[in-house]
């Protein structure tokens, strides 16, 4: 072995934006487990907020909560759909592809998970997979990045997972959300499920939950 003197690295010539290269979970196995348990408890107990492990610094405008759920559940068998603000930034798709191996699909009906950074402008639910009567599980789960997520006031939730009633005050929500959610419930057992996030909080709305104002 000859000791070859190595010149100090020149400044990296890589032109990719730094945030597209930001790391995934510090501990991919245990962080994904913690995030899954939060999402599982959230969907099993609608209206009871859970805490996601945070610490991710994904490229904007992808929120750390959406990023954590994508890293936990998406892979080559579970494609992702991005809403317009996320799709407009190539670094977002690049980051998700690198860390999950998931396809990014343009048609919401092919997506297992839809990542929504601007919930107010969310497309109608029928732009996503609603499942079939024989296979209602073949539906899209919508993951929304809200700014406000409180469970001590607001809409009244009832259904499986809720002892009596639960409350939900989330904003922004898709326009006409309560009416759209009622139409979604009428499709049961078909329909979409919704996961609401804000900061490190996550609240689940499975298709069985009924909402009234």
């Amino acid at each position: 072995m000859h000791a070859v003197p190595v010149a100090p690295e020149e400044t990296p010539g890589n032109a990719a934006p730094a945030d597209a290269l930001s790391p995934g979970f510090a501990d991919p196995v245990l962080d994904a487990q913690a995030a899954f348990r939060a999402v599982m408890e959230a969907l099993a107990r609608p209206g009871t907020p859970q805490r996601l492990p945070v610490g991710l610094a994904p490229p904007a405008p992808l929120s750390p909560a959406l990023a954590a759920i994508a890293l936990t559940l998406a892979d080559h068998e579970a494609p992702l759909w991005l809403d317009a603000p996320l799709a407009a930034k190539p670094a977002v798709a690049a980051w998700l592809r690198f860390h999950t191996g998931a396809r990014i699909v343009a048609d919401g009906r092919e997506a297992a998970f839809a990542l929504v950074s601007d919930p107010a402008a969310l497309a109608p639910f029928d732009r996503f997979a609603l499942g079939e009567l024989a296979y209602p599980d073949r539906s899209t789960t919508l993951v929304l990045a809200c700014e406000r997520l409180a469970t001590d006031r607001g809409l009244v939730l009832e259904g499986p997972g809720i002892r009596e009633t639960a409350r939900l005050d989330a904003a922004p929500l898709p326009d006409g959300f309560v009416a759209r959610w009622r139409a979604n419930g009428a499709l049961f057992p078909r329909g979409v499920d919704v996961i609401l996030t804000a900061g490190d909080r996550v609240v689940g709305l499975p298709r069985t939950t009924t909402i009234r104002e």
């Binding site: 994904a32 487990q33 899954f36 999402v39 599982m40 969907l43 099993a44 936990t72 559940l73 998406a74 892979d75 068998e77 579970a78 297992a112 209602p136 599980d137 539906s139 789960t141 499986p160 997972g161 057992p189 499920d193 499975p206 298709r207 069985t208």
Partner: peptide
């Protein structure tokens, strides 16, 4: 695990 976790979430959503 991801594949099973997705199935569990669907199972919870469709009791």
């Amino acid at each position: 695990k991801r594949m099973i976790r997705r199935a569990i979430l669907k199972g919870i959503a469709i009791p």
